[in-house]
Every structure is written in structure tokens, then in C-alpha cells.
Simulated assay, not measured.
Amino acid sequence: MDAVFKALADPTRRQLLDLLHARNGQTLGELCEGLAMTRQAVSKHLALLEEANLVATAWRGREKLHYLNPVPIHEIAERWIGKFERDRLRALHDLKRGLEARADAGDEGEREG
């Protein structure tokens, strides 16, 4: 899990994960288009993401495609958020929905009156 936290600590690596989330299966060249860095720098970031098992790769002919692997992030969420905060987050979510529903009902009453 340390490798995952280390990989996620860098904003460029998080941006790479966001790019893969938006469109999975990109080549190094395609990922470089979304970043203002050299291919070598992007390649180093991808290597760290692969080591942390956040990115999986597959070869299609001569192209190496990169895919987001969300499992390690899910495991972190389950361990650190799910176990400790699930009930509190559910209560906050329910409170938010209730307040929004009351606000919507109030808006509707103003339109009628």
C-alpha cells in the first residue's frame, strides 16, 4: 500500500490516472498530448504507477496501451474511509438530501404563491 500512496502523492501521476479514467487504453504518445512534459518524464511516472499496480499495460501490435486499475484505490477507500467513516458519510449524505428536498419544496411554494 505504501507504493500506492507514494504514486498518488504526485499531482502529475494523479493527472495521468485522470486521463486514463476519462479514456482508458491510451498509448504513451496519447498521454503525452495531455501533459506539458517529455515522453521520458511521462514514461517514468507511468512506471511508478505500474509498480503500484494502479496502471496495467497490454500490447497491441507495437503499441503499449495503458489502462487504469482502480482496485488499489478501492482497497484504500475500503480500509480508510469505508471502515471508519461509512456511517458518518451516510448520515451527512442523508442530511444533504433532506436539506435539498426542503429547499426544492420551498422554491416550489414560492413559484405557486
Score class of each variant (00 low, 15 high):
L92T: 02
L8W: 11
G25W: 11
A101E: 10
R111D: 10
L92N: 08
L99Y: 14
L20W: 01
E33T: 08
G25E: 07
K64S: 00
P11R: 00
L46W: 01
K96P: 02
L99M: 12
K64I: 03
L35F: 05
H66G: 06
A77Q: 03
A91G: 02
Q26G: 00
A103L: 14
R111N: 05
L31Y: 04
I81S: 00
L48A: 07
K64C: 13
R13D: 04
A47M: 09
R97T: 09
I81R: 00
L95V: 06
L54Q: 03
R90M: 13
G109R: 10
L54G: 05
N53H: 11
V42F: 05
A41S: 12
L68T: 01
R23A: 13
L28C: 09
A101F: 15
G34K: 01
L16V: 10
G29W: 05
L54Y: 07
G106S: 12
N53V: 08
H66R: 11
I81D: 00
Y67R: 04
H45S: 14
G109P: 01
K96E: 11
P70G: 07
E63T: 03
K6S: 13
P72L: 05
D2E: 15
A52P: 10
R102K: 14
E51H: 10
R62M: 04
T27Y: 14
R86T: 10
V4H: 01
P11F: 08
A103D: 05
E50I: 09
G106F: 13
A7V: 04
R62P: 04
R97Y: 10
E85N: 04
P72R: 00
A41V: 07
D2C: 01
G113C: 03
K6I: 07
L89G: 03
G25R: 02
I76M: 15
H74A: 13
G113I: 02
E51D: 15
V71L: 14
L48Y: 08
G109N: 08
R102W: 11
C32W: 00
L8V: 11
W59E: 14
R102M: 10
D94A: 15
E110S: 06
E33M: 08
N69D: 13
I76N: 00
H93E: 07
E108P: 02
G106R: 05
G25M: 09
W80R: 09
L92Y: 09
D18A: 12
L20M: 04
G98K: 05
R88N: 13
L99Q: 08
E51P: 06
D104Y: 07
L65H: 04
A9L: 05
L17E: 00
V71S: 03
L68H: 02
L95Q: 15
R60H: 13
M37R: 15
H93K: 06
D87C: 06
E85G: 02
R13I: 09
E50A: 08
A3R: 00
E75P: 03
A22Q: 12
D107C: 05
Q26T: 01
T27H: 08
H45A: 14
V55I: 13
E112M: 09
K96T: 07
G29V: 07
N53R: 15
A3Y: 01
R62E: 09
D94S: 11
Q15M: 09
V55E: 00
R23S: 14
T27G: 07
